[in-house]
Design a protein around this nucleic acid. Structure first.
Lengths: 111, 111
DNA sequence: TTTATTTATCGTATATTTACGATATTAAAT
DNA sequence: ATTTAATATCGTAAATATACGATAAATAAA
């Protein structure tokens, strides 16, 4: 069991779910906020701030990167992560888009 | 291992992550869309539309309900699920809020 | 060249999620 | 009273996610 049925849904729904999934852990929310608030890229500083081991933070960063919400560049021994604004904006638009259009139909709800 | 570290993050971040998690599966995105688009509450019709077994759909509905995005009422042998607009709006606001304020800081990104 | 620093990856343990069939429950229909 | 219908829950299997320590890899500093 536990067959992968996700591909049976529309690619739009899959994409939305995938963005949501990237944001579905408080550590990743915190990382996104940190990267955006900082005036410069952050690397090992994230590890200092978060209550997680270095390897775990690295894992979360990789997930954000694979979801396309963050991009990383190597700078000497250090790694520099930044928000991928192009994709984050797409994410924002898709979410606000779907949620707002749903919100317009609010009056019809029955219970 | 696999200790639960989620509680070490701010309650705001936890709440956001929890909303995101509820939307992190395409089946639940599809259910939310269905419930909003339909002029009346849907119950077993969701099962007809989704490529999943009845028990699996029921499980997803329960998750949406526990996340507060959906509410259900019993109507005879049938169950009626509706969007919980109060909470969905809160969810919308939190997401657009955080994402838009992040977006305002876009110019400072370095890579 | 050796050592220290930084980060990614590997291996691994545990927890959670996803999915289904089978069954229980409840109300309607016969 | 029995049967049918609709849905929730239970049990369970498999997949994923979460977390860490240990280690590898690559550059910088000594």
């Amino acid at each position: 069991m536990a067959l992968n049925k996700k591909e049976d849904f529309s690619s739009k729904d899959q994409e939305l779910a995938s963005f949501a999934k990237a944001l579905s852990h408080p550590a990743r929310i915190a990382i996104i906020k940190l990267l955006a608030q900082q005036n410069s890229c952050i690397c090992g500083e994230i590890v200092e701030v978060l209550p997680l081991a270095q390897s775990t933070v690295s894992q979360h960063l990789k997930e954000l990167q694979m979801a396309g919400l963050v991009k990383g560049t190597i700078d000497g021994t250090k790694s520099c992560y930044c928000i991928n604004w192009e994709n984050l904006e797409k994410c924002i638009q898709e979410f606000t888009g779907i949620l707002n259009t749903l919100d317009e139909q609010k009056t019809i709800a029955c219970c």
